[in-house]
């Protein structure tokens, strides 16, 4: 195991995070605050408590997940796409590192950054609404697993993307809708029965439900199912990455 290489990639990627810390932190904090103003105060005041939890508090886990997923994808996809774009990826390909070590470095750094952001949003949210932490260990587990899964997903996008547009389009066209329709801002019980069933095909429902359970012990699906589902997504992403490196697809000529 080339530990020095994993460390080098991780630190190099984290250095980018620290360099852009201000913009990385400020924009999610501002958008979270806006969500609270719009959904929490303006709309929330007309929505009754959901299973005993005030609407403002109810949306916090969903908001954190929204940032966690979009940030994980954009960090990881950009991290690997940029060297490909400017050509400096030659160094990575000519280095004595295995694909597993490359993934560990890049995905580890991307996940670290999005977890930090998730925690910052949690802190911001606590200024607006009362929060409970029923199962902190589960909460952290969901945070880490989601960050890892979506960073891996982002890494795959970064490798397959041919241009900057493709880099943006998947988060924009797929992830944002899935998160909005995944029960970030409502309980799926509030939907008509037909749409409740459709929603069960949305993987994000399971992530948000499990994460919210770790806060308030209320969930749309059982926490075991949530955990099983996120493990399945993680395994799917890992298999895809393994296949990409195994075949050299879109990486080597």
């Amino acid at each position: 195991m080339n530990v020095h290489a994993i460390k080098a990639i991780y630190l190099f990627e984290m250095a980018r995070t620290w360099r852009t810390l201000f913009q990385s932190v400020v924009s999610p904090v501002i958008s979270t605050s806006l969500y609270f103003v719009v959904f929490g105060s303006a709309i929330g005041s007309r929505i009754t408590d959901i299973e005993g939890v005030g609407y403002g508090s109810f949306i916090v886990p969903g908001l954190i997940m929204l940032t966690l997923m979009t940030q994980s994808i954009s960090n990881a996809s950009f991290g690997i796409y940029f060297p490909k774009f400017i050509g400096s990826i030659f160094e990575l390909l000519s280095a004595p590192v295995s694909s597993f070590e490359i993934v560990l470095g890049y995905v580890g750094a991307a996940a670290t950054k999005s977890i930090i952001l998730g925690l910052i949003i949690l802190a911001t949210a606590s200024l607006f609404v009362p929060l409970q932490f029923a199962h902190p260990a589960w909460m952290f587990l969901f945070l880490v697993l989601t960050a890892l899964t979506f960073s891996l997903f982002g890494f795959i996008i970064g490798i397959l993307a041919k241009n900057f547009e493709q880099l943006q389009i998947i988060p924009l066209l797929i992830v944002t809708p899935l998160v909005f329709l995944g029960g970030s801002f409502y309980s799926i019980d509030m939907l008509p029965p037909f749409w409740q069933n459709v929603t069960l095909f949305n993987p994000v429902v399971y992530l948000i439900s499990g994460f919210r359970w770790s806060f308030y012990e209320i969930s749309d699906v059982s926490v075991e199912v949530s955990l099983a589902m996120i493990t399945v997504f993680l395994a799917m992403c890992m298999t895809t990455v393994w296949w990409i490196f195994k075949t050299g697809y879109k990486v080597k000529k």
Binding site: H4, A8, I9, L11, F12, G87, S94
Partner: peptide, 29 residues
Amino acid sequence: LVPQELTTEAFETVWDTVTFSRGLFGKKA
């Protein structure tokens, strides 16, 4: 390997990028 084209990062410092290369090739700092 020194490639033909000037393929370098842009925002990193000289020191950081050379230190990165050493680590990537498995050598202790």
